[in-house]
Design a protein around this nucleic acid. Structure first.
Lengths: 346, 346
DNA sequence: CTGAAAGCGCTTACAG
DNA sequence: CTGAAAGCGCTTACAG
């Protein structure tokens, strides 16, 4: 059996309280007894039991990450979130449990009610998110990856959509593009209007375009290669003079490129395509490899956990913490060649 | 404050033992008192505290998933493992914590020593894996995703490499291919010789090829698009008569296709390419979309957890549980056209 | 069928 | 500087 504090105390000839003080370094202990205790711990291979500590201290040092349990969700980036969150937790000597989110807030209350975790991080939050309301009502510590409409009093971290979009626009403008179309890949249905990334990037695009004297054109695709291909078919009609496209979805971007090529257009010689907030891995296997503004997934996972831990340690909320994606050059973008890539009538 | 069993007991006019019996359904209780207790629980919104239960029962109902913490590891499939493992745990009313593996077994002992988890699932195990030795020595319950050289007494689940490979071979042979080359994407270095997926697929390929009268040719690439491209350059020399390629790595497969196309070869008209044990997502964004034998990632995550839970519930070990990938047709494979795709001297 | 009580392995005022 | 003791919220023999 594993040695307990009692065993250590007996062997060192002290009380378990004193052992506890040494283990936690929470009170002065004479060098002499400290050393005796440390020797005893070492000899017995003592490790403090986390469960007993949790019960006595009313802190489990466990936090939960609630992640969307969609079969085909944001897979690549879900990994980034989970693994960077686990690292951040581990660095702070916390454990991270993962709770698949079945979209049922009563299940969330039940889990929280277990008393197993000190706080939760929820990801993929929508502009109106029932989980946020639930956790607020429970007055349970939580942090948010994403942003609700009203972030007052919340601990949240999110992508800086505006800055990411501007990075893309700056780059393309620098290449001489003036007709830059935005394609937003969404899960479809009206729900995309409460999907932060869609709403915020579209808005950021419209504003940036207007400021720069570019006529904004927003097209909506799905999050599949096929839907990206379909967009390629419609471009002649919807945006006959486009020379560059910013696509917010990996798969749609890939499909769009393939669709353009299928129509005999060259990427990037005739049209440039930039994939916004996408992963290196996906971009690299495309042909040509896509220029992207990368998704700051790992940063967000870590920041989300850190925000929660700050809260648990008593710090107050701040403005949302935003991180922008970074431009990573591929071969799907290049200087503008001629203004009218699409034959009239498409 | 959250209601405790004591609160419930007081309100129902019974002892906390009786409340416990009702909550756990572990002893006969008269319908009358049961009902009083249930009413009290409901009125107080009682939820049993998981930490106290864990301490008293010496079972935390938490298990850990140890996952490789490589920045750029098996990303897509890591998500599959983690999320399906979390689901399986949750279905069994367990919690899953994730432990990033920094390749340090003393850290693993320390985590296990916390007493926080009832068992662990380790993934990406090598043929000789120090973590397995560590856990065995600690006599701590664990299950393994992957296989060590000796699986005696272990609870392990793995990909059925032989069957997956045969599926690929059968399919390509059915298309008339007789010159089928195998490309194994490994992390490089001698360590690949202890990397199960590499060793097992190469061996399965050699055997299957020999049985079918196919001259086995094994090439080794990295796990990047670039290394796949390089393989394309070498094919003329190494396998001038290849008409089909099986590639065990997503990125390498994508690079290989691009490299072949760059040399003026058509995929699949001149050469067929099949990506072994890869993900739909990666395959779909390639051009043409790749035919794959899919990786059974989600199945394995679930099976790994279930194997561990069986062990915790007292069941004995079995033979390794294997799952094969499934053929999913893309457009990178087709009937053999002519036997010599590569110009002599290529 | 129900209860009193010990115990899980710690933390933490409180005394001295 | 150190210790005795209560307490965290449960489970589980043991009695009755």
């Amino acid at each position: 059996m594993a040695a307990t504090m009692k065993d250590v105390a007996d062997r060192a000839g002290v009380s378990i309280a004193t052992v506890s003080f040494v283990v936690n370094n929470t009170k002065r202990v004479s060098p002499d007894t400290r050393e005796r205790i440390e020797r005893a711990m070492h000899e017995l291979g003592f490790r403090r039991n986390a469960v007993a500590r949790a019960l006595a201290s009313r802190r489990t040092r466990i936090i939960a990450l609630v992640y969307p349990d969609l079969e085909h969700s944001v897979r690549g980036s879900a990994t980034d979130f989970i693994s960077s969150a686990a690292q951040a937790a581990s660095d702070a000597d916390y454990n991270l449990v993962v709770w698949p989110d079945r979209g049922d807030t009563s299940q969330l209350s039940a889990l929280v009610g277990q008393g197993l975790v000190d706080g939760v991080v929820i990801m993929e939050v929508g502009l109106d998110d029932p989980r946020v309301d639930t956790l607020r009502r429970l007055k349970f510590p939580f942090a948010v990856i994403g942003r609700t409409r009203d972030t007052q009093g919340l601990y949240c971290v999110d992508i800086d959509f505006e800055a990411s979009l501007r990075t893309a626009m700056d780059y393309l403008q620098g290449l001489g593009h003036r007709q830059i179309v935005f394609v937003s890949g969404t899960r479809g249905g009206a729900s995309s209007d409460t999907y932060g990334p869609h709403v915020r990037t579209v808005q950021a695009y419209r504003q940036a375009a207007t400021e720069r004297g570019i006529r904004p054109v927003v097209l909506r695709s799905g999050q599949t290669v096929t839907s990206g291909r379909m967009i390629a078919q419609q471009l002649g009609t919807n945006a006959p003079d486009a020379t560059a496209l910013i696509v917010r979805d990996d798969a749609a971007a890939a499909g769009l490129v393939a669709g353009l090529q299928g129509r005999g257009l060259r990427v990037p010689a005739d049209v440039s395509v930039l994939s916004l907030l996408s992963s290196h891995e996906m971009a690299a296997v495309c042909h040509p490899p896509l220029t992207i503004v990368s998704s700051p997934g790992r940063e967000l996972g870590r920041l989300g956990v850190e925000a929660l831990l700050r809260q648990l340690h008593g710090a107050g909320p701040t403005e949302p913490l935003l991180r922008a994606g970074v431009l990573e050059l591929g071969e799907s973008t290049g200087p503008v060649a001629h203004a009218h890539a699409f034959p009239v009538g498409g």
